[in-house]
């Protein structure tokens, strides 16, 4: 199938392979060594690596710089970009900057509210929202123009993604919301971490009923649980996260030293179940500060070796 961008992720998806992506958070300082190390750890097991953009509003090294670093290592980064911190001038400018380094994937997000982070007294921008950012990137890429209408000297050749959270409320608009992102021009979706598989499958049913799975690639998001504590925290404290009681009970059912292994096992089982779910085009494995486990999960889930994407 023909691709619209030089993105390796796009190529793999359009060739009909189940894609595998993962993500890394940049360091809280200028020392970039650890992102290089994380990249090295997972590079053979994933097709692309998201770099988060000041996630949970904790100030970090910028996503763009970390993406450039991965690109220079020959890896395939996905630039996450939130509309919280940049107005339309800065967003377009950073998109062009990323494109100049041949960063070919972007994930358009609104971003967590700044009150969660280390600058809770700061201002937020929200000049445009995540859906409008999708439109903006597509406009720049497809029309070759700035939002202001001027011609671009060189279009950003980016494969455009966004997030979807099937578990947030109101549930009834979660399929229409995906439709809205598709209408805005999104090409791939990475979902919120899935623990409630039944609910995810219900959402996917709604997605298929409207044929939306044929209009964009949906990568199911998965995060292995490290412990009962983490599961409880995610259940109670993380907005828009759906962690069913069974997950907690299953982790509680094993001794403390083996909870992490159980979490990995549950993650692998989820992938295996969702491989059978029509419309799931790949997996986004977010092993938070646990990247070394990604290869193990990918292999055990039968997703290794990766296609070369050329």
């Amino acid at each position: 199938m023909t691709t619209k961008t030089p993105s390796k992720l796009e190529k793999i998806l359009r060739d009909g392979h189940l894609a595998v992506t993962s993500e890394c958070g940049p360091p809280r300082g200028s020392n970039i060594d650890h992102i290089v190390k994380k990249g090295e750890l997972i590079k053979d097991h994933v097709d692309a690596i998201n770099i988060t953009d000041n996630q949970t509003s904790m100030t970090r090294l910028c996503s763009l710089a970390a993406c450039i670093r991965l690109k220079l290592m020959g890896l395939e980064p996905v630039l996450q970009m939130v509309t919280r911190d940049r107005n339309r001038i800065a967003l377009q400018s950073d998109i062009l900057g990323a494109a100049s380094f041949d960063i070919n994937n972007i994930l358009c997000l609104s971003g967590d509210h700044q009150s969660f982070g280390d600058c809770s007294q700061g201002q937020n921008v929200h000049d445009i929202d995540s859906i409008q950012l999708i439109q903006a990137v597509r406009h720049m890429r497809d029309e070759g123009k700035f939002l202001g209408g001027d011609e671009l000297e060189g279009k950003p050749e980016m494969f455009v993604g966004a997030a979807a959270n099937p578990f947030a409320d109101p549930f009834e608009i979660r399929v229409p919301r995906l439709a809205k992102k598709i209408a805005a021009g999104v090409e791939f979706i990475q979902t919120q971490c899935i623990y409630n598989l039944d609910k995810f499958e219900e959402w996917m049913k709604g997605v298929r009923e409207r044929g939306l799975h044929e209009k964009c690639f949906i990568l199911a998001g998965l995060t292995p649980m490290k412990s009962v504590g983490m599961a409880k925290y995610m259940q109670k404290r993380v907005p828009g996260m759906d962690v069913p009681e069974e997950v907690i009970k299953r982790l509680q059912g094993v001794e403390k030293g083996k909870q992490a292994d159980e979490g990995i096992k549950m993650c692998i089982e989820s992938i295996q179940r969702l491989k059978e779910c029509e419309g799931v085009a790949g997996f986004h494995v977010m092993a938070i500060e646990w990247e070394e486990k990604v290869p193990e999960i990918v292999e055990a889930a039968g997703l290794y070796p990766r296609p070369n994407g050329n």
């Binding site: 509309t83 919280r84 609104s110 971003g111 967590d112 509210h113 009150s115 969660f116 937020n124 929200h126 445009i128 929202d129 995540s130 859906i131 409008q132 997030a163 979807a164 959270n165 947030a168 409320d169 109101p170 608009i173 809205k180 805005a184 919120q192 907005p239 828009g240």
Partner: peptide, 20 residues
């Protein structure tokens, strides 16, 4: 809307309440 989203809601909407 705490993020003044024109095409909301964000993924933080839980049982009718805002993530903040």
């Amino acid at each position: 809307c705490a993020k003044r989203l024109f095409n909301g809601p964000c993924g933080g909407s839980t049982t009718g309440k805002c993530e903040i």
